[in-house]
Simulated assay, not measured.
Amino acid sequence: MEKRELVIIGAGPAGLSAAIYGKRAGLDTLVLEKGRPGGQILTTSRVENYPGIIDGTGTGLADAFRAHAEFFKAEFRSVSVQKLEVRDGEKIITLKDGSEIAAGAIVVASGAHFRKQGCPGEKKYTGMGVSYCAVCDAAFFEDLEVAVIGGGNTAVEEACYLTGFASKVYLIHRRDEFRADKLVVEHALANPKIVPVMDSVLESIEGSDMVEKIVVRNVKTNELRNIELNGVFIFIGTLPNAEFLHDLLQTDAAGWIITDPKLQTSIPGIFAAGDVRDTSLRQVVTAAGDGARAAMSAYSYLQF
């Protein structure tokens, strides 16, 4: 069985930061990632709240993070993790191909994924008008009308981004005011292409081969409204990428991993960093800080 000092599961900002700090601390460091390194920042068009980056891109920042980790010779492996367990006192990672890695310390930095709406038509039209990534798909809706579902920062910011392509963006939220930051909301509502639809929930997505309309319901009056459009972008929250844990670690009711101040989980030698853990803020800067702390906590753990 392969044995490594530090194994990092996930290569978003938290995992990449952990790789940088792990290698600089002299640890044999392996990063496991099933897709392109970068995590959710790969779906972000603009980055303007990471210190030192006034106007950057998600892909640009992700590439810089990886280049930094590679400069210190962190090893990357493109694989899917199927299971994490403790067996006979050893921390074992099982990969999709059945191979196993024993790790002295582990940083779980597997991130999160977008929550599905769950309404009729969502699954059927995913990839045919339904999207969870404006940066990926906005160009397909040039001069067409679309809807954004959600009221947080991501939804409102992505609605603004979509106005660079779509002719009209319906911003649909189930409450009477948006949850996004005040400045973000003010910027969005000042854009004539954005049409807020408040107190409303998405009931269904309909069409033929592609999306043609949505049905929304006013939560106060129960009135149904048909809105003809061509695309639906859903941004209603996130869920942790933690299926491979199989209840190994202590989590909160929603499945986010609980850590102590040193980012250690309920099992000694297993740490969690970034969006996958129970935290009050999920941003690139907090994920990067988590990765640094988790790696140094892992280093301290391995010394004793």
Rank of each mutant, 00 (worst) to 15 (best):
Phe72Pro: 05
His246Val: 07
Arg36Glu: 08
Arg282Val: 09
Ala155Gln: 05
Asp55Gly: 10
Glu48Phe: 06
Ser300His: 14
Val276Tyr: 12
Glu122Gln: 01
Thr59Glu: 14
Ile234Glu: 12
Arg179Lys: 15
Asp137His: 02
Leu27Lys: 09
Val197Gly: 01
Glu145Val: 02
Ala242Arg: 08
Ala74Asp: 02
Ser80Cys: 14
Asp55Cys: 06
Tyr132Lys: 11
Leu42Phe: 15
Ala69Tyr: 07
Leu248Glu: 13
Arg179Ser: 10
Ser110Trp: 01
Lys73Ala: 09
Thr163Arg: 11
Ser167Thr: 15
Ser110Glu: 12
Lys124Met: 13
Ser266Pro: 04
Arg87Lys: 12
Ile149Leu: 03
Asp137Glu: 10
Tyr301Asn: 11
Ala103Pro: 10
Lys193Asn: 01
Met128Tyr: 04
Asn230Gly: 08
Lys124Phe: 11
Ser17Asn: 11
Ala287Lys: 07
Ala253His: 15
Ser280Tyr: 15
Thr163Met: 07
Arg175Phe: 10
Pro51His: 05
Ile270Phe: 05
Leu263Glu: 14
Glu177Val: 13
Val31Thr: 02
Ala190Gly: 12
Ala292Arg: 01
Leu239Ser: 11
Pro261Phe: 00
Cys119His: 05
Phe178His: 09
Asp260Gly: 04
Ala19Lys: 02
Tyr299Leu: 12
His68Ile: 04
Thr126Val: 13
Leu27Gly: 14
Arg66Gly: 01
Ala242Val: 03
Phe271Ile: 04
Ala105Trp: 11
Ala155His: 04
Ile214Met: 12
Pro196Gln: 11
Gly274Gln: 06
Ser266Asp: 00
Ala188Gly: 10
Ser204Val: 08
Asp278Val: 11
Met210Asn: 15
Val185Pro: 00
Asp199Val: 09
Ile205Lys: 03
Gly118Pro: 09
Gly22His: 07
Pro261Arg: 00
Asp260His: 09
Val148Asp: 06
Gly129Pro: 07
Val185Glu: 01
Ser204Cys: 03
Thr238Gly: 07
Ile54Leu: 13
Gly35Met: 13
Leu183Arg: 00
Ile214Ser: 09
Ile172Ser: 05
Asp252Asn: 06
Lys220Ser: 04
Glu122Arg: 03
Gly164Ser: 04
Ser80Arg: 15
Ala180Leu: 08
Ala139Glu: 03
Pro196Glu: 05
Ala109Thr: 08
Gly118Ile: 06
Ile93Ser: 10
Glu145Ala: 07
Thr59Pro: 13
Val215Tyr: 10
Pro261Ile: 05
Leu32Gly: 04
Ser131Glu: 12
Gly60Pro: 05
Gly207Tyr: 15
Leu16Gln: 07
Gly89Ala: 08
Gly56Tyr: 09
Phe235Trp: 07
Asp260Gln: 00
Val284His: 15
Leu189Ile: 06
Leu171Asp: 03
Val108Ser: 08
Phe140Asp: 14
Tyr170Cys: 03
Ala103Thr: 10
Asn226Ala: 12
Val185Cys: 02
Lys193Val: 00
Ala67Lys: 03
Tyr170Gly: 00
His187Met: 15
Pro13Met: 11
Ala180Arg: 03
Val156Phe: 00
Leu248Cys: 03
Ala105Asp: 05
Phe141Gln: 00
Lys193Tyr: 12
Thr163Asp: 12
His68Cys: 08
Arg115Tyr: 07
Leu84Met: 04
Ile205Val: 05
Ser297Gly: 13
Leu239Glu: 07
Ala64Phe: 13
Ile270Gly: 03
Gly104Arg: 06
Ala112Ser: 12
Phe233Asn: 01
Asp181Thr: 04
